[in-house]
Nucleic acid binder design. Sequence first.
DNA 1: CTGAAAGCGCTTACAG
DNA 2: CTGAAAGCGCTTACAG
Lengths: 335, 335
Amino acid sequence: MATIKDVAALAGVSISTVSRTLSGIAPVSDETREAVMKAVEELNYQPNVLAQGLKRGRSNLISLIIPNIMNPIFPAVARGVEDRARNMGFNVILCNTDEKLDVEEDYVKKLQMRWVDGYIFATASGNSAHIRELHGQGVPVVLLIRGMDLAVDQIVLDNFKGAYEAVSYLISQGNGSVAIYNGRTDIELYQERYNGYLKALEDAGIPFDENLVLGSAQNAEQTNTYPSVMEMLEKGLRPDAIFVASDPMALGVMRAIRDFGLRVPDDISVIGFDNLEFSAMLEPPLTTVSQPLYKMGALAAERLIKRIERKGASKPPRIFRINSKLIVRHTVKAK
Amino acid sequence: MATIKDVAALAGVSISTVSRTLSGIAPVSDETREAVMKAVEELNYQPNVLAQGLKRGRSNLISLIIPNIMNPIFPAVARGVEDRARNMGFNVILCNTDEKLDVEEDYVKKLQMRWVDGYIFATASGNSAHIRELHGQGVPVVLLIRGMDLAVDQIVLDNFKGAYEAVSYLISQGNGSVAIYNGRTDIELYQERYNGYLKALEDAGIPFDENLVLGSAQNAEQTNTYPSVMEMLEKGLRPDAIFVASDPMALGVMRAIRDFGLRVPDDISVIGFDNLEFSAMLEPPLTTVSQPLYKMGALAAERLIKRIERKGASKPPRIFRINSKLIVRHTVKAK
DNA sequence: CTGAAAGCGCTTACAG
DNA sequence: CTGAAAGCGCTTACAG
């Protein structure tokens, strides 16, 4: 590939002049500019990003750190990050941590050697010392999907409101008793969804029944939803509806209801959370709460890169609490 | 961050010696080594990858170029690539092209400025001049999922065999007439699946009926499957089974069958292709053909990186034709 | 407006 | 076994 020297030689100027012409930062005479541009064109010259980075202390690389791209909420997030980053002249390095702290720390260490300019974290981890440290060193960081108590930009869903609206909708349709199947409440977003559920009940004057709380505490993931729902049904409990804190979990819930011999939504209504691609294609199509994952990813990338580019003189950090949207399909019945 | 100079100063040696000690490539006295290592430890020194790259002409970065991470077959592929790359000391830059040639070319151009060491392409594109060019320049390239006529490593599914087995299974269960809902046959893998379908019919002595061929030619994607199936049903055609060339398309097919008032599998059996995560959770769970996406991604990364490391003296390119596996669930009924 | 020079942080012949 | 020097491809004060 052609280097700046080749361009300088062909244009008959010094490499300094080539550099200045290209950066547009200093004044250059018209004829010089023309000669340089012609040479650039002719040689199809592209500046070497490694060399630029070494000089400027920048790599134009950001890193997206997520638990697992195979978790169905992340592809849209990643796509949003990638698209916006590309438009702003950055590439993104994708990292999967499986929620393992040591993997995450190892990644960050390696990426620092690479002079990655900024980090988007969409990982949980109660202990996030390495994120704090990064931020303490002045490295731009933004938190996505999962927030934490740190003075950086955060793009998170208004989970409380999303859950509140879903449960209120259920109640408005005449479903007097509403169960919840929640995720791990040590993850903040599930705790918020739980709070939204409680508040909706309270505002409707419906007494809380702890027998109607499934999942939650334990390491509850979708695989477990089936037996717990079965168990509840076998105990003779018959809520009018179940609010399920994620679409994949809702699948297991619906299957359990059906295998028990009941119908969705005729006997029990179900509402999910996430609005994954397959949710619309289920039988019946799932009513659920949609989060604008793509947009959230794009916003995260944009905030991060703006910070990278302004460096010190940035605006104070901000928490973006994004609104979800209820998607009404066919798993809720008016009673 | 500490640089090699700091280490040299602290250890009381030259930077050359530090470099040699760390690379382990040249002999160093024991006491020197100890002093250097102690300094490295103390300063928590990490060599600057940008500087190393500039010197060595290597970035330890590979690029994975796919149509769209939101297409459900790609998360597993990406995860496989990323895991293996990481184990081998490389990071991966993810690129989504939406099958647009100009986006893809633009990406490659930018990535070359970054001295990306190798490329994994999982994109179609009849016109793949830029891939040929890359390969012509001696840049390591591997093709994944979608092959082409080029002398590089390729990791592709044996689509012919997968389809052949699926259709033969359908026939063995007594389904005498089998329709196919195929993808765009200008994409090689769909053409191969079509050929497998034809061959299975032929080997079973079942005459080919062109009325039973849906999708295929047009820009057929999942959204379109519903109306075409409806149309076929309304024409009075009643195949015993439909072989659908992808799971997302199978969803629409099943819905159409059901909306028409028939049952899956009692009236019409359905078999998909891909074995996506949601396929097991459908109602009824989908019988389908599984491709080992994660493994294929990992293999692609491994081959690519081995080539990067050996450079010139590599083995001749090889086409890996991976076997699929029939996953029997509940959408096929013995007749 | 333009060029020569220093330097970003490394690696690697070249001497010794 | 070790150090001084050149150089990877750029950018950016510093002179002029």
